[in-house]
């Protein structure tokens, strides 16, 4: 499989005729790179990642995947390269969790064919790798928010993408599953060179990433290595609170806010 080259330049987006909610944001992802996107609520993070996933068309700016404009790609071929995990998925019908995961095989399936036994194996492996194999036969609709998030992540893994776009996947996960999520991303990078761009409010998790992109009011407030971005000065500016504290502990940075 060829190396990933994902490049977004000077993206801008506005809903309807309103003011721009993302302005002049450029971002690239190479083979095996891991980028965390942080910022206060309403700073444009989700809008940005939805543009990167091809769900929103930027008002201006370009997105290229492997040197080809994003919207010039055949949608199914693109889906074999880039997978997207939304903030929350709610289905109106009681699909089984395994059926949700199998949908990730759709971009790989031949036209007018059901998925093969191999596809089912890949889907089960994906469920196992996120520790959710026991949910396979359960109705997705009846799962807890965290369990659904694991199943949707497994769906994205079954897609066998080169780049994962994750919109706050950790928000409804417990401490162990948050850590497991990061371990899964690190393992995928090590084994298959999979890259990730992940939105998170969980600053503790961002220490494992290569770079952090911090958004403030739709613009880039900082872009750099975790230890360079997770400083009291920058974080205070990003979140608009002078009482943000951060401290390096070994390899990680602890961040909290004084009451």
């Amino acid at each position: 499989m060829s190396e990933l080259c994902f490049e977004a330049r000077r993206l801008e987006y506005a809903y309807g005729g309103g003011p721009a909610v993302v302005r002049d944001v450029s971002l690239s992802a190479g083979q095996g790179s891991m980028t965390a996107v942080i910022g206060a609520n309403g700073s444009g993070k989700s809008t940005l990642i939805r543009m990167l996933a091809g769900l929103l068309r930027p008002r201006s700016g370009t997105i290229e995947l492997d040197g080809v404009a994003f919207d010039k790609w055949d949608a199914r071929l693109r889906a074999r390269r880039v997978a997207y995990v939304p903030q929350a998925t709610a289905t109106a019908f009681p699909f089984q969790a395994l059926e949700i995961v199998l949908s990730g095989r759709a971009p790989h399936a031949e036209r007018f064919r059901l998925e093969s036994g191999r596809d089912v194996e890949i889907a089960m492996e994906a469920l196992e790798s996120v520790g959710a194999a026991h949910l396979a036969r359960r109705a997705f609709i009846g799962l807890s928010g965290g369990e659904r998030q694991m199943v949707v992540l497994a769906r994205a893994l079954a897609q066998e993408p080169r780049l994962l776009l994750l919109d706050e996947p950790s928000s409804s996960l417990d401490l162990k599953h948050r850590t497991d999520l990061i371990r899964t991303l690190l393992r995928l990078r090590r084994k298959n060179g999979v890259s990730a761009i992940m939105i998170t409010h969980d600053l503790q998790l961002t220490g494992a990433f290569d770079q952090i992109l911090a958004l403030r009011c739709g613009e880039i407030a900082a872009l750099g290595k975790p230890e360079a971005v997770l400083t009291e000065e920058l974080l205070g500016e990003i979140y608009g609170d002078p009482k943000v504290r951060s401290q390096r502990v070994g390899e990680q940075t602890l961040v909290w806010v004084e009451l």
Binding site: D74, L77, P86, F93, I100, G104, R111
Partner: peptide, 23 residues
């Protein structure tokens, strides 16, 4: 019937369908 695969993905979720290659 020929659209049943696309409709199956749409029945799950619209954004999911779009990122799985459905126009």
């Amino acid at each position: 019937l020929a659209l049943s695969r696309q409709l199956n993905l749409l029945a799950i979720d619209e954004d999911t369908a779009a990122t799985l290659g459905v126009d």
